[in-house]
C-alpha cells in the first residue's frame, strides 16, 4: 500500500491553483444536499462556463423549486426566484426587458416536465434567446423520491414501489427530443454528471448553449442527468452506474440539435 500524503495544507513546492474549494461564482460551497447528489456538479459546471465565457457580469439565473434552490442565495450571480414550473415565463419577461443580459433557468425534471411543461415548450417554440437547464434525476428529490414524468420504466420511487409500470403510470417523456424539433430551438443537448468524462462533455454542451444565447441564435436547452441516490434507494457509490444503466439508456446523452452554421 502506498503512503498517504498529508493534504491538510497547500503544497510547499511551487504550484498553481487549478481549482479552489469554492468554485467561481459560488460564494459558499457548504450545503445540505445529500451525499452523492449530482446537482452541485451540474450547477458548478453551469456557472463556471458562464464565467469562462466572460458572461458573468451579464448573467441572471432564474431558479425553479427543488433541492438546487438552496443554491440561489449562495451563487455570486443575480437570481430571480420563480415558482415551481414557471421559470421559463419569468425568463421570457426578463430577457425581453433586459435583452443584453444572459438569462438562464435552472429547473428540475419535476419542476419543468411535470409542473411547467407547457411553459418551456412555448418558450422554446417562441425561440426566446434564453438557456434552459434541466437537472433530470427522474424523481422529485426534494419531496423524498417520488415519480416524475421522466422516471424511467421499472424505476422504483416512493409512489411506484414496484417500479414504474406503463399500464399504471404511463411512459416517461424524453424532454430534449421533444423540444429539439421546434423551429425556435437552436441548440439541444443532454449531458450527465455520473463521471468525469461526462462532465467534460457536459461543459462543452453548456458552453455551446450559452454561446447560442450570446450570439442571439434562439432558444438553447441542456438537460443534465444527475444522480439522486437517496431518491433511487441505492448506495451513493452505485449511483453513477445506475444512471448509466437505467436512466441514460432511455434518456441518451449527446448533442441532439445544433442549428449553428458549420455545426
Amino acid at each position: 500500500m502506498s503512503e498517504i500524503l498529508e493534504t491538510a495544507t497547500p503544497p510547499k513546492r511551487k504550484a498553481k491553483l487549478v481549482d479552489d474549494f469554492e468554485p467561481s461564482l459560488i460564494l459558499e460551497g457548504k450545503h445540505q444536499l445529500c451525499a452523492g447528489c449530482g446537482e452541485p456538479a451540474a450547477l458548478r459546471s453551469t456557472v463556471e462556463i458562464i464565467d469562462e465565457l466572460g458572461l458573468a457580469d451579464r448573467a441572471i439565473g432564474v431558479f425553479g423549486i427543488g433541492c438546487y434552490t438552496s443554491f440561489s442565495p449562495v451563487l455570486d450571480l443575480e437570481v430571480l426566484q420563480a415558482l415551481h414550473g414557471r421559470a421559463p415565463s419569468l425568463a421570457t419577461g426578463l430577457k425581453r426587458v433586459q435583452p443584453d443580459s444572459i438569462v438562464f433557468t435552472i429547473q428540475g425534471d419535476g419542476d419543468m416536465v411535470n409542473e411547467g411543461l407547457q411553459e418551456v415548450i412555448h418558450t422554446a417554440a417562441r425561440g426566446e434567446p434564453v438557456t434552459c437547464v434541466m437537472l433530470n434525476n427522474g424523481v422529485f428529490g426534494e419531496t423524498g423520491g417520488h415519480m416524475t414524468s421522466t422516471t424511467v420504466l421499472g424505476q422504483r420511487t416512493k409512489n411506484t414501489l414496484e417500479g414504474r409500470d406503463p399500464k399504471q403510470h404511463g411512459f416517461p417523456i424524453r424532454m430534449a427530443e421533444m423540444l429539439a424539433p421546434l423551429d425556435g430551438v437552436a441548440y439541444v443537448a443532454r449531458g450527465a454528471t455520473n463521471n468525469a468524462g461526462n462532465i467534460f462533455q457536459l461543459r462543452k454542451m453548456l458552453q455551446s448553449a450559452f454561446e447560442v444565447q450570446r450570439d442571439g441564435l434562439g432558444f438553447s436547452f441542456v438537460e443534465i442527468l444527475t444522480m439522486c441516490p437517496t431518491g433511487w434507494f441505492i448506495q451513493t457509490g452505485e449511483a453513477p452506474d445506475y444512471l448509466a444503466d437505467k436512466m441514460a439508456s432511455y434518456h441518451q446523452p449527446g448533442i441532439i440539435k445544433d442549428a449553428r452554421e458549420g455545426a
Binding site: L25, L27, R58, D76, D100, S101
Partner: peptide
C-alpha cells in the same frame, strides 16, 4: 432590479419570495 450587472461582483442581487438577500 436585475440586469446581470452585479453578477460576479460578490454582491449579486436576488429577487425572491423566499429571501431578500444573498447568503453573504
Amino acid at each position: 432590479l436585475l440586469d446581470g450587472s452585479t453578477s460576479g461582483s460578490g454582491t449579486a442581487r436576488i429577487i425572491s419570495p423566499l429571501m431578500p438577500v444573498k447568503r453573504n
